[in-house]
Write a protein that binds this DNA or RNA. Sequence first.
DNA 1: TTTCGCCATCAACATAGGTTATAGTAGGGT
DNA 2: ACCCTACTATAACCTATGTTGATGGCGAAA
Lengths: 263, 263
Amino acid sequence: MSSSVDRTNNGQGNQRMTAKSAPPGLDIFLRKLLSHSPLTDDDQAAIMAMPHSVRHMEPNSYILREGDRSGVCPILCAGFAYRQKSTQEGGRQIVALKIPGDALDFQSMYVRTVDHNLQALTAVDLVIVALPDFEKMVATRPAIARAVIVDILIEASIGREWLLNLGRRNALSRLSHLLCELHYRLLDTRSEGLDARDVPMKQEQLADLLGLTPVHINRTIKKLESNGAVARHGRGIRLGDIESLRRLADFSDTYLHRNNRAG
Amino acid sequence: MSSSVDRTNNGQGNQRMTAKSAPPGLDIFLRKLLSHSPLTDDDQAAIMAMPHSVRHMEPNSYILREGDRSGVCPILCAGFAYRQKSTQEGGRQIVALKIPGDALDFQSMYVRTVDHNLQALTAVDLVIVALPDFEKMVATRPAIARAVIVDILIEASIGREWLLNLGRRNALSRLSHLLCELHYRLLDTRSEGLDARDVPMKQEQLADLLGLTPVHINRTIKKLESNGAVARHGRGIRLGDIESLRRLADFSDTYLHRNNRAG
DNA sequence: TTTCGCCATCAACATAGGTTATAGTAGGGT
DNA sequence: ACCCTACTATAACCTATGTTGATGGCGAAA
């Protein structure tokens, strides 16, 4: 159920290579940071030179568990992951969605215990940096420290928008909003957003994301499809018309703080 | 509609006093930071010595608006406030609740524009520190910098728990959960939690907090009351039995990271 | 003391979304 | 080429919460 080899587009799933051979994935992390924070060439080189190992994980495997004390900072370089919490009665809620380039756990640098579960959504490739190494870099390089904080703050801002989504939007708007967000977030590190590829979540996972049931997600997708906002390719959902989606979702990307730098 | 004088328990609502006369409110902020982060006497003194002004604001007044560029770090020393976002169709969602001792806007130190509205819930007394002054302190004193980040992370953790609340708990559990949270958060800076005082929110505001309607909040309060979990004093709601509430809410305080220090 | 306005209360009805259960279908593994 | 399993689809029915609108009472201000 964990750590086999390959099986992602970049076909790069090896183990424990502490080297910097080919592009091992840190580049997309760097691109992500640069999308919201400026870094000197020197800082950029420092990031690319971090000692790290590479790890491949299968869909649904746990990357971090509630209550853990993590000693490691995993970075998602291929595939998707999510943070998730559950109710005692078994209700499951996805509370954050992580895409390629995202760091998965800055929090453990500052706080002792992990307060949620972190799971692979698809097959994922992780770059794993030891926490002390990361802390050293942050302590040495203020611009990187700042970028880390900005990253944390943007995730928090996304969380606030999700609260608005869950609290005050109906199923159709919620789903549309999620698709818009995913599209624009993908554009921060790549040239295409959701256009070319299928939405990476199954209907059950969409339900857990949006506080709905799979049955109702199914109904809602069909409504979106009949609108032309979304297209189906077999089981997959693909972007139909982003402008329709934005309208349905009441979407504005300011909460993503794209290309932001502080005063 | 703003800045008149006094009208809060500490009766301390003046303007622009850059002095450190009587206890002006920074002490409760310090206590809040100490509740999750250790600080040397020296660091503590530095915080208490920050140049600041004091500001009183009436209920419902805006402390910060979406789109603003803030130059100031307001600290809530008496009263309650909340962050709020709205849908174009007029749906209003409270996305964070701030209590005495909380800093209201660390975010503006790192990111250009404010992505939500910050409003006074009750009459409030604010201590206002100029952002450059705060930045200077954070740049000089690593322990304070770390405390600020921990504070940001705890707010984010609370946001995740609220997502679980909105997405996967019914009205009764949601309300119970909120009351539990408020109780324990108040205990971080004071000796009594919610025991002695009324819940500071009106039913409409509870509705905006919990993604419900005022009518349904009313129904739910009555159910809680018949359980004995909550008591009424006139219009006010007061804690009845915290253990019942915890049970109804499926509450555990680990997400609040009380008394936490990182490795 | 009276007035006035804001809140809380309550009831009757409406609906978005939940539940359960039964097919159907794609696609990987053999 | 086949099977198996996991996902999707759909229908019928159910319920938590929303909506609207009428009533009543507390508390601030005059």
